[in-house]
Structures are given as C-alpha cells and as structure tokens.
Write a protein that binds this DNA or RNA. Structure first.
Length: 873
RNA sequence: GGGGGAUUAGCUCAGUUGGCUAGAGCGCUUGCCUGGCAGGCAAGAGGCCACCGGUUCGAAUCCGGUAUUCUCCA
C-alpha cells in the first residue's frame, strides 16, 4: 500500500462515519503567540476545545503537517540517530467536538486498523490511564471496559500520567488517553520477550501508532482540574509510522515517504544508505530536515535569526552540518532535493510544488552562507588550538566560537578529538546555561487564571463600522513579564478594536467607565480566535457598561497603509509579472513593509512605475467594496488573492478597490483618495528571491516631502544658488579636492623650506645635532617635519614646540641610533619638559609628544631641553 | 525580546598594554622583461580606520550612542 493510499483510506473511513474532511492548517502558526509551529493535529481546533468558538461540524477528520523540535521526545539533536523520530511529520486525526466520545473513538480506531488496514490483531496492544494520585484521578475504567470487549485483557496495559494523560500546556483542556501500539518484531523475538513488556520502552519495533485523547478536564493556573461542560475526542496517528507498519518495513525511513529522498541523497553524495552508521544517520538527518524546512518555507516562514525563522535555520544548518561532516558535502546540495520532494508530495500539499523554485533558492542561499560560516570557524578554531597551553580547550572559548561565530559545538569537539585535544564540556554547558537563563529571565511571562464575569460564546468585532462601542467585560486576567511589567488582558462581549493580524498592528485606544474613569488599551491581539485587549491597569469597577474608543488617528493611518499595501501588491503583479507573491507584510500607522517573491533588484524605473501605478489608483478615488461573508469558492472565482500559509474558513471577507481583490480581515479606508499619496522609501533583498519594499502614505508622506523640501531650501540657501544645487555641490566637491591637493603641496613646500632652514640652525653638542625651537605648525605637521629631518640628518635631537588654540605642544624626535646608544628616551624627555607647560605626554623612545595648557612655559622648556642634552653627554 | 561579535584600500583581511608618519595579499594603472596556463620584475594610484559624541598631550585602538551586519539564546 503506497503512502498516498494510506492517507486516502484514512480520510475516507472517517468520511463514511459522517466526518468532514478539512485541509491541513499551515505548519507555521500565525495567530497564536503561545506556539510557533503546529505541533499536533489538534492545534487548529484549539479554539473549539477552549469554547471560544463553535465549530461548523462536530465531526472532523484531516491529515495535519506538524513540526516538533523540542519537548520530551523530540529533541532536535536526537532526530536521525534512530529510525523513528522526525522534526516534521504528518498526523492523521479524527475529532469530536462535544459529539461522540470514548466508545465510538475506540471502536472505530480498532475497526480501521484491523479491518481496513488489516493489521494483525495479534500485534496490537492498547494502553489505558492508570490514574494519578497527584491529580486525585482514578483509573480510566470507562476506556478499560470498552477495550475489554475488543481485546484480551493481557493486551491492555496500564499507563502512567507521563504516557497516558495528555495536556495542551500548563493550563487548559486535558484528559486521559488510550494509545495503540504495534509490535513489529520477528516471531522468534516475540517468543523470547513478550510485546506487552516493551510498550513505551523506546523499542524501535514496538511503537505507538495512534493516540486517542479523551478531553474531559480543564487544568487551571493553580494546577487543579475541573470538569469540562462538553467532552471531546482528539486523536492523532503518526502517518510515517503507519506507513512503516503497512509497508512491512522496519524503519520510517524505509517507507516510500523517504526512500525517494534517500536515493537522491545517495546519487548526489555518492554515499550508500546502509553502509556505515555515521553516514546513515547523516542521510536520515538530511532527508528528514529538508522536508521540514521545505514545508516551512512553503508556508511562508523563511530562515531568519529570530523566532520561528530561527528554528527553521537551525534545522537546516543541522542538516548542512551532518552533510559536511559525514557525507563530505562541501558545496550546497540540500536544495537539489527539493525537486524530488515536490514531485512526491506536491499532490497532497500543492503549496510545495507551487513554491519549489523559491524553496530551492532560499535553501541554497542558506547553505552557502552557513558553509562560509563553517570555513571561518575552522580558521578560528585552529587559532584557539594554537594558543591553548594544555591539551584541553577551554569551554568558554568553545562557547564563544559557538555563540558569537555560530560554529557548531559538535564540530568543535569532533575536530579537537581528531587532533588529540579534549573539550571542557562542563565549561561549555555552564556558559550555555547562563545564556539560556538570561534569555528566559528576560522573556518570562506569568499568567493568572481568567476571572470570568459572564458567559459569552463568541465575541463580535464591530470595528469595521465604528470606532466606538458600548461594551461589557466578559473576562480578564493579569499577565506579568519582565519587559512590560504587570498588564491586564481584557475580553469584551463585542469590540471595535482590531486585533493584530494579517500583518496589520492591533488597535490602541481607551476604555471609559460609567464614572468617567479611563483605562488605556495599549495593544490588541488575537489568541485562540479571541480578541484580547491589553491594558496597563484594571478598571476599578469591572461590571457595568464601558465606552470603548479606538485611537482614530492611528487607525486611519494604518488603514491608509493597509489599502496601499493591496494596491502595491496589485502594482507589483501588473508591472513585474504574476510570479510576484506576497511573502509577508507589516502594516503600521507610520509605514508599511511588503515582502514578495521576485528574482532581481527593482530598477529605479520599475520603482517609479510601481509608485505611479499606486498613485494613479489613489487619484482615481476608488471606493472600498467589501463583502464580509462570501463563500471562499466564490471569492476565488472572482479572482481574489489568497495568501499561502494562511488558514481560511469556509466563508471569507473580500476587500476590493478597483481591480484589486484580496481575502483580508484588515481595516481599510473608505476611498483610496484618503491615502493622499504613496511613496516608496526603500527596496532591498531579505532572502534569495525575496525582495522587500518599505513605503509611506498620508501624513508620513507629507512629512517626508516637507522635510526633504526644507532641506533642499536650506542647501540652496547655503550654496547661495537657486539653480541646480546638485551641480553646485559637485563643483564644490571638485574644487575642494583640488584645493586639498594644493594645500598639501604648499604645506610640503613650506615644510621643505622650513626643514632646510632648521637644518641650517642645527647646533653640534658633542656630536649630537641639536635644535630646540618653536615653530608654527600643528602636531601632524611637526611630526612630518621631524621625520623628514630625521631621514636626512643622523644623530638628530629635535625639540619642536608650537602653540595652538591657547594650548602648547612639545614634540621630541631623537634619531633611533642616538636614542639607543645614549640611552635617551623621547617619551621621558617630553614628560619632564611637559611640566613647564603644565601638561604631560609620552610616546616612543624616538618620537614623543606632550601637550599642556600653558604656552608661556615654552621658552623655559626649550632652554631646559638644551640643558638636558648637555647633561647626558 | 535578551546576549555576544564585526565594520580599516575595489576585494579578503592584519594592526599586541592608546604613540610603528595606517599595513599585507589579491585586484587596478604605468613601464620593462617573457613561448605561457593565477607569467616575471619595477614603479604607482587607491583610506573621513561605518557614523556621532566623550576620555586623553595623543584614539583605528578606551568609553557611550546610532546604523548596518553576523551569530547564539528565548
């Protein structure tokens, strides 16, 4: 059975049980600040479990792309070492939102596995939650009894809280679960050791394939549990593992999900899979990671140095590192796997084949840059080794290499080992922990429980039509972080505040209580489909009706920028071509940023054309035409642009200005004329094949033009010309450099004259060519002069003084031979003579300078110099 | 969001405790030599040492800030 068939049969099975098939949500989370990536099938349904929204269908089934790089069983550094862990994987699931519960979940799971997939019942084990004293929970008798009807009791295993109690996080919905495990070992081994004893023991051939979660509790902030009003089913079956079972192989990597990738890696690197342990691990790492990274990029997440982008970068770099070390790839090669990947999975996940060119470019670029980081690191490591005293390399040094220069610690340790050195691992771990603690402390957030004032199933957003509304507080909680201090999160029954989303910033504003008290709303964000308002403090009286008022100015400027973003998107597609796709946007009140796919730098003419295109539509006074509730299919037929990596519902909102139609939830101007003007302020690259435009509109554009204009007038004023200031500046620059050369020449001539003059004045004191004199030069000129004379006269002793801005300078030059023969030291001499001018100084034995604030002391210093020379001879 | 680095000639980079008249290699220009494969020799041009401020007699070097960039952590 091919993997495609496995996937299709799963979905079909549940479709026949009245489940609605829904598409996979994007792997990269956009609207949940608590999570960077989709890490389980249930993520996209979280709002239903929390009761924030009501699902359209109570039974749903899907396959979900997931990414896990941390957690108890998913340490990134472990992936590849065994044959069954992955960063990215697909999770097949069926769901009940307050509909069927344990009975159906258990029966259907069994039916699918044994009758559709025809897995031998003899190989299956199931587990049941044994209860937990901590939580005062008993054995999950209900599940046990249900299983007992299907499987012999010796195949039902008791599981502890760690394995059989599932939680979403520290807080929130949770419940006991039943896992289904399959024993893939040979007959002989089964006879030796019973399978039941190997369940959950990390045996690669006795593995969990399906987890049925019975969500029935809510965990509160203080750790206690309460019953949920509605009970839910959440199941997840690892797709890759299921394929392994059904394709009768011993490793996920031997299924047709991975073999095409592995064959391609073999072809490119010349290393055969299955020859050596080291190369095998490396091949698995590369095969797994390229999948994760490619899907993430397809979902719009580029590698970067912060947040989710950094996780992607780390995954990709780990693959590069393994290739570099164990597959001898010193050139980019991972990008070459994208083709195979998109051929294999493009049908199930069309975003992959659609974006394969960009994915290739980005990966290649990232490979190149990391390979040069590695090269640089090798040089640095070499110098660390050379400068180390013993045979142990300091952990802090290694950490510096890692932290500052990005050189991987495992490479450091490997190279050291080869060269017979030892790495101080403890020192490294200590430094790493210190850095982690620092980061964690800086971003620590603690959340109280919600205080619920009234029940309200779904809150309404009224902000498209009004900026003011009378609202009631539904619930609130305190949130503390180091950076923001104490803040309060408020949820209303309805709100005019737009929550951050679709690239647009959240609204600011205030809340007015009946007694006139005002609470400022500093930001608005969406969490699990709930609009959360952030306030610095809590209203004194939380019940009653508040007047919620959005900051009109910020909203207006943001709307101008958002509408301009749509027009810009349209302009780029018209002018550059339809390969242009939005890769990200940030709409603020003061400016907008738009990232899009394009292969080359925009020329000045293209930028001008884009600006003109947008401004023509602003001048065209196009009215906003919105449709708040239109079936997505219909919207697409009208040509609305949807963004990849966004999750859309069945019905969507479309925003139209002229020929620009986009699926968008943001706030817009009523008419493009409101924008006044659109001005691009910068254009540049953010990644291979991705460009970024930053632009301004309305007030910001006015301000921009005003400032520039004023500056131009000031420049004209200064230049005393009303004509072409560019020409004037150019000719000034030309003149300036000519004058500079002239001055330089004159100074040289003057110095030459002065030099000859001074040479004539030299006095022979016991073979020393001596001169102490005040000259009219600055410190640099004196230096030049002294060295010029030194080049011409041997046994020279010069003390030159000058006066500048009321300050005195003394410089002493002594020919090198003279200085060493007679033990003279210019530094000491100027320090001594500096006393006359109330100053100090120093330098080298043959040339030194001192400065002081008393020019009147110069004659005394000059006289003193002669005495000094007489004394030393 | 929190750290750590980097920024010096067209490019790749040296530059020690503040003082070496700011350097090397490659590239460039010019001349000479040369049956060569990165030709050889010689001469030369090319620097606001990222920017702004401070400390100091003196700052590429020390301190603070800004910008750009790399990197690690969350």
């Amino acid at each position: 059975m091919t993997s495609q068939e496995v996937r299709a049969q799963f979905l079909n099975f549940f479709k026949e049980k009245n489940h609605k098939i829904v598409p996979s949500a994007p792997m990269v989370m956009k609207n949940d600040p608590t999570l960077m990536f989709t890490n389980a099938g249930m993520n996209q349904f979280k709002e239903f479990f929390l009761g924030n929204s009501v699902p359209k269908s109570k039974r749903v089934t899907d396959t979900q792309k997931c990414l896990r790089v941390s957690g108890k069983h998913n340490d990134l550094e472990e992936v590849g070492k065994d044959t069954y862990h992955h960063t990215m994987f697909e999770m097949l699931g069926n769901w009940s939102f307050g509909d069927y519960f344990k009975k159906e979940a258990i029966q259907w799971a069994w039916e699918l596995l044994t009758e559709v997939y025809k897995i031998d019942k003899e190989n299956l084990y199931v587990s049941v939650f044994e209860g937990s004293q901590d939580d005062k929970l008993e054995l999950d008798q209900e599940a046990y009894d249900l299983w007992k009807e299907i499987v012999p009791e010796d195949r039902i295993i008791m599981g502890n809280k760690k394995d059989n109690f599932w939680e979403m996080g520290d807080q929130g919905p949770c419940g006991p679960c039943s896992e289904i495990h399959v024993d893939l070992r040979s007959k002989e081994e089964k006879a030796k050791v019973p399978g039941a004893s190997l369940v959950n023991q990390d045996d690669p051939l006795v593995v969990e394939i399906w987890n049925l979660v019975f969500i029935q509790y809510n965990r509160k902030a203080n750790g206690s549990l309460e019953d949920l009003p509605e009970k839910h089913i959440d199941t997840g079956m690892g797709f890759e593992r299921l394929c392994m079972v059904l394709q009768n192989v011993k490793s996920n990597y031997d299924t047709d999900v991975f073999t095409p990738l592995i064959r391609e890696i073999e072809t490119i690197t010349g290393h055969k899979y299955g020859k050596t342990e080291e190369a095998d691990i490396a091949i698995r790492v590369v095969a797994d990671h390229v999948r994760a990274v490619a899907f993430a990029i397809a979902d719009g997440q580029l590698p970067s140095n912060t947040g989710a982008g950094y996780v992607i970068r780390r995954i990709l770099r780990r693959a590069i590192r393994y290739g570099f070390t164990f597959l001898d790839t010193k050139q980019p090669f991972i990008f070459r796997l994208v083709k195979v990947l998109s051929e294999r999975m493009g049908d199930a996940f069309p975003e992959l084949s659609k974006h394969h060119q960009i994915i290739e470019n980005v990966i290649k670029e990232e490979e190149n840059s990391f390979l040069s980081t590695l090269e640089q690191g090798l040089v640095l490591l070499d110098s660390v080794i050379k400068s180390s005293k013993g045979k142990t390399i300091d952990g802090e040094k290694a950490f510096e290499l890692y932290d500052t220069f990005g050189f991987p610690i495992d490479l450091t340790s490997l190279i050291l080992e080869e060269k017979g050195y030892r790495l101080d691992v403890e020192g490294f771990e200590k430094a790493l922990k210190a850095q982690k603690d620092r980061s964690r402390a800086a971003s620590e957030v603690s959340k109280d429980d919600w205080t619920v004032l009234q029940q309200d199933a779904e809150q309404e957003f009224v902000g498209y039509d009004t900026l003011e509304a009378n609202v009631k507080l539904v619930k609130y909680r305190k949130v503390s972080s180091k950076k923001e201090g104490d803040q309060y999160q408020l949820v209303f029954n309805l709100t005019p505040f737009y929550a951050e989303g679709g690239g647009q910033v959240g609204d600011k504003g205030y809340l007015e209580a009946p007694n006139g008290d005002v609470v400022y709303i500093v930001d608005t964000k969406k969490e699990n489909n709930e609009i959360v308002h952030f306030a610095e403090n809590l209203p004194k009286e939380v019940s009653g009706t508040f007047k919620a008022v959005v900051d009109q100015e910020q909203r207006f400027h943001t709307a101008c920028n958002h509408t301009a973003t749509h027009l810009l998107h349209q302009a780029l597609r018209e002018i550059l071509g339809s390969h242009v796709e939005q890769k990200g946007s940030a709409v603020h009140a003061k400016h907008l940023r738009f990232d899009f796919s394009h292969f080359s730098k925009l020329s000045v003419e293209e930028l001008r054309e884009v600006e003109n295109f947008v401004n023509a539509r602003i001048e065209g006074q196009l009215p906003l035409q919105e449709n708040r509730n239109i079936p997505i299919k219909e919207a697409m037929e009208q040509g609305a642009m949807a963004l990849f990596g966004e999750k859309y519902g069945d019905t969507v909102r479309t925003v139209r200005f002229g020929h620009s139609i986009e699926l968008c939830g943001g706030t817009h101007v009523k008419n493009t004329a409101d924008i006044w003007h659109f001005k691009i302020v910068s254009e540049g690259a953010v990644a291979a094949g991705i460009r970024r435009i930053e632009a301004i509109t309305s007030e910001a554009a006015k301000e921009f033009f005003f400032k520039n204009n004023r500056m131009l007038f000031e420049i004209k004023d200064l230049l005393n010309t009303s004509q072409d200031p560019v020409k004037a500046v150019a000719s000034l620059q030309e003149e300036n450099s000519a004058l500079k050369k002239q001055v330089e020449q004159l100074l040289k001539d003057k110095a030459k004259g002065l030099k000859n003059e001074l040479i004539a004045e030299l006095k022979d004191i016991n073979g020393i060519q001596f001169l102490a004199k005040k000259v009219d030069l600055d410190a640099g000129g004196i230096k030049d002069l002294a060295f010029a004379m030194g080049g011409q006269v041997d046994d020279l002793f010069l003390l030159l003084a000058s006066e500048n801005d009321g300050k005195a300078i003394l410089s002493c030059y002594i020919s090198k031979d003279l200085a060493s023969n007679k033990g003279l030291n210019a530094g000491n001499i100027v320090r001594e003579l500096g006393k006359h001018i109330q100053g100090g100084g120093g330098g080298q034995p043959f040339f030194a300078t001192a400065g002081g604030k008393n020019p009147d002391g110069i004659p005394a210093a000059l006289a003193n110099a002669e005495e000094l020379v007489l004394a030393t001879t």
